[in-house]
Structure formats: structure tokens, C-alpha cells
């Protein structure tokens, strides 16, 4: 079965998409299904930014071991995003600090920005998907 986006030439300009990740990677499915959107969306060659804040910063923490909870550890997929030209990853400083984390604890290179800078970055976007 062919997918709808394979049939038609997509019309429209390149837009600034931001995916806001606010929830822990396990416990709910939001993080995993958000990542699935990002991967599919990469085919549309839009201007993509990922933001991690609140418990969302745990999605990209190193050393995740999910064996005991019987759920797939999908954190390695974030390292593959570069191959999809998804390279703008921003993490909110306050969210990291309040959880005792630094950029060195993360599986991917990110830019750490303040809450205020994050607000400015959101202001620049055209489409914001918050998960």
C-alpha cells in the first residue's frame, strides 16, 4: 500500500516546525510516538527544531536500561536523527539543572539555552507540536 505522501507532490513553503518534548521517555507513550512523528516528518524537508524541557530531558539521557520494565529502549534513535538532517536540538537549562543533569549526560550533542531563550525560539516557529 502506498502512503499518501508518496502519491502527491507536496505543495507549500518550507516552514519552521518545532517538536516540544516535555515528558519522560517511559511511563507514557508520548515520547516514543513524538519521535515517530519527527522521523516521518523528516521526509518533508522542513526546517525542524527539537526542544527538550521538563521531564522531556530524560528522553536523551545516557545509559538508559529498560530491560526490567519490558519496554524497548529507543534512546539510540535520537543519535540517528542527524542522518535525517534533524540537527537543531535545544535543551532548557533550568530543566537540566533542576534534575542534576548537564549536557555531558546526554546521548546527543545539544545546545543548552535558558528558559527565556527557549521562549524566544518558540516565538520564531510557525508550527509547534507539543508532546
Amino acid at each position: 500500500m502506498s502512503e499518501p505522501w508518496e502519491d502527491d507532490e507536496l505543495e507549500g513553503p518550507v516552514r519552521k516546525f518545532m517538536y516540544v518534548n516535555r515528558k519522560a521517555p517511559y511511563g507514557t507513550i508520548y515520547a516514543l510516538e513524538s519521535l515517530e512523528v519527527v522521523l516521518i516528518a523528516a521526509a518533508f524537508e522542513q526546517d525542524v527544531t527539537l526542544a527538550f524541557l521538563d521531564d522531556g530531558v530524560y528522553q536523551i539521557v545516557k545509559g538508559q536500561d529498560t530491560e526490567e520494565i519490558g519496554v524497548k529502549n529507543f534512546s539510540p534513535i535520537y543519535r540517528a536523527l542527524e542522518g535525517y538532517d534533524v540537527e537543531k536540538l535545544f535543551v532548557e537549562k533550568e530543566s537540566l539543572e533542576s534534575r542534576g543533569l548537564t549536557a555531558d549526560d546526554l546521548v546527543v550533542p545539544v545546545e543548552v539555552i535558558s528558559r527565556e531563550q527557549m521562549a524566544d525560539l518558540m516565538e520564531e516557529q510557525e508550527v509547534i507540536l507539543s508532546f
Binding site: E3, G12, I40
Partner: peptide, 19 residues
């Protein structure tokens, strides 16, 4: 029922996507 591409297309072609 259709693919996630339909969501991205909606984001591109609409004035606003409301979540």
C-alpha cells in the same frame, strides 16, 4: 486511516495547527 504525513501536510498548508 492514513499516515503521519497527513499531519505534517496539515502543518505546512494550514495557517494554524491547533493541538
Amino acid at each position: 486511516i492514513s499516515g503521519l504525513g497527513q499531519l505534517i501536510e496539515a502543518g505546512i498548508q494550514s495557517d494554524r495547527l491547533v493541538v
